[in-house]
Design a protein around this nucleic acid. Structure first.
Lengths: 224, 224
DNA sequence: CGATTGCTTGACCCCCATCAATCCTCGTGG
DNA sequence: CCACGAGGATTGATGGGGGTCAAGCAATCG
C-alpha cells in the first residue's frame, strides 16, 4: 500500500568528496515527535536528509481530511520532488519519532545534478520508482476494500520498519495515523484491527501490532 | 482527477539535431482503436512518442478490476518510466482512437540522457510533475466520494481534450472507461451522469458529454 | 436482420462514515 | 501519592453511498 521501500537514497552515487561535503553541512536539526519539518505551501530551499527518526508525509484533501502519502525514514531524502519542480511543497512532513535531519541547500543539489550525471540518473531512477509505487497506490485506493488495504498496509509496515524484540512492528502509529494511511475513518480502522486480532492474524503489544499469521493477512490483501 | 496535463513532453529541450534524428525514426506505427501499444509485463525496448491519437494507460488490480491511470495524447511520450527504471511495464496502453506512434529505441534515449543535461533535467521535471499529480490522485481516490471524482474528472477531461463544434468534450469514452477512470462500477457512473444531466450540470451529444454548468460542477468536485 | 455489445434502470444489501457514549492511559498539579 | 483532565481507543447504533445482480433497451456490426 504505502511506498514502503527506501526512496530517494540517491546519495550513494555521489562521489566521496560530494558525500563528505554534504555530510559536513552545518544545519543539522533536531525535530521532536509531533513537530513538522515543513508544511503545505512552504518554499523548500533545499532538501532534508533524514539522519535518524521517521516522519509521515501527508496532504489535506479539499474535504478537510488528512491523507498520509508516505513514511520516510533514516537515509531517505525529503523534499526532492518540490525542489526539482521548483514549486512550493504540496505536502506536510511531521515527525513520528524524534528526528535528526540534515538540510542540504538547493545550490548544492543543483550543482550535483548539473555536474554529476550518475547522480542525476540515480535521482531519475528513484523518481521512476516512486512513480510506479504511486500508480500502484492509486489502483489500490480506487479498487480495494478498506480491509484489503489495511492488511496490505500492516504487511508493508513490517517490511519497511521491521520488528522489535517482541516481534511487534517497530513503529509507533496512532489508530488515526493508520486510518489516514489507508484512507478511512479511525473507527473503521479500529474495528478491522480488532477483527484481525479475533481471527488471530495479528496481536497487540500495547498499541503496537504483531503479525501472527502473515499468510492469511496476505490472502486478505489480495481479496480472499 | 486524472493527470490531465501533458506529461513527458521532454523533447522540447532537445537540440535541433536531436529532434531531426528522432523524427526520422524508421519505426512509425499505426495503432487502431482498441488495439494495445503494450501490455503489463511487456519489456519496452524504448519509448513511444504519440504523433496522433489518444490512448488510455491502465492497470489491473489484484481484484481483477481495471483502473485507468492516465490518458495520453499527441506530443506525449509513453513508456518513459519503465525505460528509466529498466523494468518490464506495469501498465497497459490501449488506443482510444486510431493512433500514429513513433518508436524511439532505448539507446537513443539513453544517449540523450547521458549527453544532454538539459534533456535529463527536463525529464526529471516532468517526472516530478507526474509524481505530484499521482500524489494528488491518491488523496482524491482515498478521500473523495465517487460523485466528487466524477465531477472533477469531467472538468479535467474538458481541460485536457477541449470541445468540438457542439461544445462536447472532444474525446469518445465509454461509460465503462469513465468508471475505470474514477474507480467505480459502470452502473454507478451512469447513474451519476444522469443525475448531473437532470441537474443541468451537463448534457449529452450522443454519448459525449457537454458541460453546461461548470461552476456547479466545480463546487461538487470540491464537496458541496 | 439476428446477435453481440454497450447503455440504462430497478432492487437489494453490505460496507463504511458518522455521531455518541464510555473506557483507558498517561501526564500534570495539588 | 492520588485526583483529575485530556486525548486516544473502543464499542454501539444508524443511515447512506455505492457495489452487484438482473432485466430491458438501444445501437452497432457482420
Amino acid at each position: 500500500m504505502l511506498t514502503i521501500y527506501s526512496q530517494f537514497n540517491s546519495l550513494k552515487h555521489l562521489s566521496k568528496d560530494d558525500i563528505i561535503r554534504i555530510s559536513n553541512c552545518k544545519t543539522s536539526k533536531i525535530i521532536k515527535k509531533g513537530e513538522h519539518i515543513f508544511e503545505e505551501g512552504d518554499y523548500l530551499n533545499g532538501v532534508y536528509c533524514i539522519k535518524d527518526g521517521v516522519c509521515k508525509v501527508s496532504k489535506m484533501s479539499e474535504n478537510g481530511k488528512n491523507q498520509i502519502i508516505n513514511l520516510v525514514k533514516r537515509g531517505d531524502l525529503l523534499g526532492e520532488r518540490s525542489l526539482i519542480s521548483e514549486e512550493v511543497s504540496n505536502l506536510n512532513a511531521i515527525a513520528l519519532k524524534d528526528m535528526e535531519v540534515c538540510f542540504i541547500p538547493k545550490e548544492e543539489i543543483f550543482r550535483d545534478l548539473e555536474k554529476n550525471a550518475s547522480f542525476t540518473m540515480d535521482v531519475l531512477k528513484n523518481m521512476a520508482f516512486s512513480l510506479k509505487n504511486s500508480d500502484n497506490l492509486i489502483v489500490d485506493m480506487a479498487q480495494k476494500s478498506v480491509k484489503q488495504r489495511l492488511a496490505e498496509t500492516i504487511i508493508k509496515l513490517q517490511t519497511k520498519f521491521g520488528v522489535n524484540d517482541s516481534g511487534a512492528i517497530n513503529l509507533q502509529l496512532s489508530r488515526e495515523d493508520i486510518g489516514n494511511i489507508i484512507g478511512t475513518a479511525t473507527e473503521s480502522c479500529i474495528r478491522l484491527l480488532s477483527e484481525f486480532k479475533k481471527c488471530r492474524y495479528i496481536d497487540f503489544q500495547g498499541k503496537n501490532i504483531i503479525i501472527t499469521n502473515k499468510n492469511d493477512l496476505e490472502k486478505i490483501a489480495k481479496g480472499f
